[in-house]
């Protein structure tokens, strides 16, 4: 990237040097599961001009009413630091973890991929699904719905391969992530 994309406007008025390249980070946010909490997080991103590449949210601890929001975002190191500090400032936020920098972590995404076709294309889509360990969750004479899980890259690769084989619809969950190892 030669000219870094600048989400915050201005040119020489920003104290950002050109070697500040944009990085992709996966941030895990543990929040109280209360009304409006997702709007607070999303509003923070849109209000301050940060990027959201993917966002997932679900309650993870029913007894404590805690939800986990996993956000994949991109920005310069200064912006990423800002995002984390801004998130920590929100009242219902318990913990913010940057899975990209804080030790090894796992990322998974699930996709439902609908492919329409007959004959050789249909057979080929089954073969590729096998290689990707996707399985069929719905079938008609002229279509399949595959369910597949993997990293974002793997899901992208699978979808790209299905493109010429009659891909007609995709639904993806977005990224969920967790740190490796015994610690929470």
């Amino acid at each position: 990237m030669s000219e870094r994309s600048n989400t915050r406007g201005g040119t020489e008025f920003l104290a950002v040097s050109k070697d500040d390249l944009s990085e992709r980070h996966t941030i895990s946010v543990l929040v109280d599961n209360e009304a409006g909490v997702l709007a607070r997080v999303i509003g923070l991103f849109s209000g301050r001009g940060y990027n959201i590449e993917s966002l997932t949210v679900a309650e993870t601890d029913v007894s404590k009413h805690l939800s986990r929001i996993t956000v994949v975002t991109s920005g310069t190191p200064m912006i990423i630091e800002q995002i984390k500090n801004q998130l920590r400032r929100l009242v219902p936020v318990h913990k913010v973890t940057d899975l990209t920098v804080e030790g090894p972590s796992l990322e998974r995404e699930m996709a439902l991929v609908k492919v329409q076709g007959t004959g050789e294309k249909r057979v080929e889509s089954m073969r590729i699904a096998d290689i990707f360990r996707a399985h069929v969750v719905d079938a008609t004479i002229e279509s399949f719905v595959f369910e597949m899980t993997g990293s974002t890259e793997k899901v992208n690769a699978f979808i790209n391969l299905m493109q010429p084989l009659g891909l007609i619809d995709v639904s993806r969950t977005g990224v969920v992530a967790i740190a490796r190892g015994p610690e929470a």
Partner: peptide, 23 residues
């Protein structure tokens, strides 16, 4: 102008709000 702001100084920043720092 940010690029010309106090170019030669070492900056100490005391703030209760971490999001104000390095913003």
């Amino acid at each position: 102008k940010l690029t010309a702001f106090s170019p030669g100084s070492k900056k100490i920043h005391v703030d209760i709000d971490p999001s104000s720092i390095n913003k």
